[in-house]
């Protein structure tokens, strides 16, 4: 098995060498900086998309995790690296909130979006033995006993936090938000009955839903998603939610804004091929994510919309340290 892999790798390298002669960029290996740690969602997506991109580029991409500061360490590192297109960033949505959270002045406006690979969808999940069968039942119960229902969260700016702020804007209710270190630990607490519900990302919760360990109430989307066909869209009960959607965590590949055009074009092409590869599409589907595969102006528009929707939502919830207005982020 391994010998076969090695053989395949050698053939690939030889082939890659030949292909590389036809163009100037890339003429040596690239470094891929991953925003989050090994085993995290961004890491998995990065490792899944890279092999096909390497093949298309004809050079290898050395992947390095640089976690920390909810992503601020990786954005600072890539910004400080030479703008030659040899240092690329595999990032998630977090930098778009760094400005309003007062964490860093660098966000995706400083980067060129090579490819927004895909996005996740939110899903509200409750304890398996919870009395509610729809989100409106949860809201009604929460209004009857304000503050008694416990919501698992991941701190300001996280998926549960933002989804909760959206839901609260259309259907006011009062719950106690208990912050955890991430969606994984929060979902663990949900299974142990230590919290009552979580507006989670679908990729973390999909397997638990399938196994019946947690009860899905609604997906945060305008229509049901492929992985959970029986879970109603939140807009069925709360049509006003539509103004925030589509919303979800996203994963993308970025380089510095001032990278030469030639490199940008080569990277966009390579990642476009990689994001349509069968392996990658399969992995994204398995994780409950939606493949987007957009770049250039289309990606820029998506990033700007996302930032405007989310930061102003946080602003209205009183959870920002710097107003989006001061950062020049337009109101949605």
């Amino acid at each position: 098995m391994i010998f076969r892999t090695l053989l395949a790798a050698t053939t690939m390298l030889v082939g890659a060498g030949l292909a590389a002669q036809a163009q100037d960029y890339p003429d040596h290996e690239l470094q891929g900086i991953i925003m989050w740690g090994a085993g995290g969602a961004t890491d998995v997506v990065a490792h899944a998309v890279t092999p096909a991109a390497e093949e298309a580029l004809g050079q290898s991409i050395v992947l390095v995790n640089r976690p920390g500061g909810t992503g601020a360490i990786s954005t600072a590192f890539v910004s400080a690296a030479p703008a030659d297109g040899y240092t690329i960033l595999y990032g998630a949505e977090n930098p778009q909130l760094h400005g309003v959270m007062g964490l860093s002045e660098i966000d995706y406006a400083d980067f060129y979006p090579v490819n927004i690979l895909g996005r996740g969808v939110g899903v509200v999940v409750a304890r398996a033995d919870a009395p509610w069968n729809s989100f409106s039942e949860l809201v009604a119960d929460a209004n009857e006993r304000p503050g008694e229902i416990k919501m698992g969260s991941t701190g300001p700016g996280g998926i549960p936090f933002v989804v909760n702020a959206m839901l609260n804007a259309v259907a006011p209710y009062e719950v106690t938000a208990v912050p955890f270190d991430g969606e994984g630990p929060a979902l663990t607490a949900l299974q142990g009955g230590h919290v009552d519900f979580i507006p989670s990302g679908i990729s973390a919760a999909a397997e638990l839903i399938r196994a019946g360990k947690v009860k899905p109430l609604a997906v945060i989307n305008t229509e049901p998603v492929e992985q959970l066909p029986n879970v109603p869209a939140i807009t069925d009960e709360y049509p006003e939610m539509e103004k925030y959607l589509p919303w979800g965590p996203f994963y993308g590949v970025f380089v510095r804004q001032d990278v030469p055009e030639e490199a940008k074009t080569a990277l966009v092409e390579a990642f476009d091929t990689a994001a349509s590869s069968e392996d990658f599409v399969e992995l994204m589907k398995n994780r409950g994510n939606i493949v987007m595969n957009i770049s250039g102006d289309e990606a820029r528009e998506f990033l700007d919309d996302w930032q405007s929707t989310t930061t102003w939502l946080l602003q209205e919830a009183g959870e920002t340290k710097v107003s989006p207005e001061d950062l020049g982020i337009p109101k949605p």
Partner: peptide, 26 residues
Amino acid sequence: LGIPGDAVTAIIIGSLYIHGLKPGPL
């Protein structure tokens, strides 16, 4: 359960996804 017991198993779970498996209760 698909829950990591420590830092090493957290990394193993991530790799199971890449190998096309679905770590979780099932």
